[in-house]
Amino acid sequence: MNPTREITLRVNGNTVRAVCETRITLLDFLRDQAGLTGTHAGCEHGVCGACTVQLDGESVRSCLLFAAQVSTGEITTVEGLAPAGSLTDLQRAFRRHHALQCGFCTPGMLMTADALLRESPNPDEAAVRAALSGNLCRCTGYQPIIEAVLDCAESRAEATLRADQRHAPTTSGGAA
């Protein structure tokens, strides 16, 4: 009998429990046990990035982890980015810029870009290219993806600026 165990993971805020072979990768656990098929198997040897998810907010390749290794962490997949029926600003930017064609690399791209923008809210183009260099795409030529990430960052910066202006103490006019 192959080694088997009960694996309990926190995924997108939910608890997923399943009895499976110990050798199951996080990728296969998410797809086959948790039913979250948005995370894709592209190469299963850690190069293509299609299986990228977030572990405690950091992008990781789910094909390079065993499910049994990550029971203490919080896992986020593409299904956990936005509440059902809605899209995040990053997802909307992808659509606006035609940053996806076949859509197979898209979940991994989104998870990588989402983690990037959290850590580095105002990346320049070179930083975005470097951050996405571990995610292969065969359709788009990357350019619209990079534009989408930069556009999203810009929009967030503008929104923050507007919010700051709204909440900033008034220094002229009526304050006197």
Binding site: T37, Q91, R95, H98, T106
Partner: peptide, 17 residues
């Protein structure tokens, strides 16, 4: 903008696997 995109952006596409 494409009508296809929403399902791909949310992980709701249905690929062969």
């Amino acid at each position: 903008e494409r009508v296809e995109d929403e399902r791909f952006l949310t992980g709701a596409g249905c690929f062969t696997d």
